[in-house]
Amino acid sequence: MAEVKLFGAWGSPYCCRIEVALKLKGVEYEFIDEDVHNKKSPSLLKYNPVHKKVPVLVHNGKPICESLVILEYIDETWEEGPSLLPKDPYERAMVRFWTKFLDEKCMPAMRKACLSRGEEQERAKEESTELLKFLEGTVSGKKFFGGDNIGMVDIVANFISYWFIIGQELVGLQVLTKEKFPKLGEWMDEYLNTIIIKENLPPKDKLTAMFQARFEAAATATATAAAAGGGGGGGGAPK
């Protein structure tokens, strides 16, 4: 049997993506939980010397890094189980477009909305709202982003349905609500109530405690920078 290891972090939406994909494909694997904020293991540094980050999938001793790359690798390597990407070249291109949109546009704006304060937070809330409108239109009329089954866009959008919802509740935001985005609300219900998704989400209380600690650290860093005359905002993002 092929040896499959996943170097990850229990609270990371990026790593959760990979676990969900492996479970959907029925691939057995060993999960190595990395303490990425304190001391990274020699194995992680060996397998991902460029970015030194999780997730890293190791298949028969060969490492694959970056979650979007790993998801495509899983889909192409294990044909068993549902396809994560469509076969049609145009549809595959659209999947790659929306996954990059989620990672490069949505996630930074939503992180900033949770972590910043004042005018910077207001700008991030407005940007997040505008980006969510695009996603609302994309999922409209479908059970999942790709149709009737969970696909790569759904898996990449996991942080919206779970991580961001927890984050906005903690800081008192009303950016993503079912009233404002009913189609996304329906998608979230479908996605989060799928058995394989439920079984692989981090515990809400544990994730909430981690976010609370990071939000407080970000607020302290902002206050310190302001007191020193540097303005500042943001801080480290939850991951």
Rank of each mutant, 00 (worst) to 15 (best):
residue 1 M to K: 15
residue 5 K to E: 15
residue 7 F to Y: 15
residue 10 W to V: 04
residue 10 W to Q: 05
residue 12 S to R: 04
residue 13 P to D: 03
residue 17 R to Q: 14
residue 22 L to E: 03
residue 27 V to N: 08
residue 31 F to L: 07
residue 32 I to Y: 13
residue 34 E to W: 07
residue 36 V to Y: 02
residue 37 H to R: 09
residue 39 K to Q: 14
residue 41 S to Y: 12
residue 42 P to Q: 02
residue 52 K to F: 04
residue 54 V to Q: 03
residue 54 V to A: 02
residue 55 P to M: 00
residue 60 N to S: 06
residue 61 G to P: 12
residue 62 K to E: 14
residue 63 P to S: 08
residue 63 P to M: 02
residue 64 I to S: 13
residue 69 V to P: 07
residue 71 L to T: 04
residue 71 L to S: 03
residue 73 Y to N: 09
residue 75 D to N: 13
residue 79 E to G: 02
residue 84 L to R: 05
residue 85 L to G: 02
residue 88 D to V: 04
residue 90 Y to H: 14
residue 92 R to Y: 06
residue 93 A to T: 13
residue 94 M to G: 00
residue 104 E to R: 01
residue 104 E to K: 10
residue 105 K to V: 01
residue 111 R to I: 12
residue 114 C to E: 13
residue 116 S to P: 11
residue 117 R to S: 10
residue 117 R to N: 09
residue 121 Q to M: 06
residue 121 Q to L: 05
residue 125 K to C: 15
residue 127 E to A: 11
residue 127 E to K: 14
residue 134 F to K: 13
residue 144 F to N: 08
residue 146 G to Y: 10
residue 146 G to N: 09
residue 149 N to F: 09
residue 151 G to P: 07
residue 152 M to Q: 10
residue 156 V to C: 14
residue 157 A to W: 03
residue 159 F to P: 12
residue 159 F to M: 09
residue 160 I to W: 06
residue 162 Y to L: 02
residue 163 W to K: 03
residue 165 I to T: 14
residue 167 G to S: 15
residue 174 Q to S: 15
residue 176 L to E: 06
residue 179 E to W: 00
residue 186 E to G: 03
residue 187 W to R: 04
residue 189 D to I: 03
residue 193 N to M: 00
residue 196 I to T: 11
residue 198 K to T: 03
residue 198 K to I: 00
residue 209 A to S: 15
residue 211 F to P: 01
residue 211 F to Q: 13
residue 217 A to V: 04
residue 224 T to S: 15
residue 226 A to C: 06
residue 227 A to K: 14
residue 235 G to Q: 03
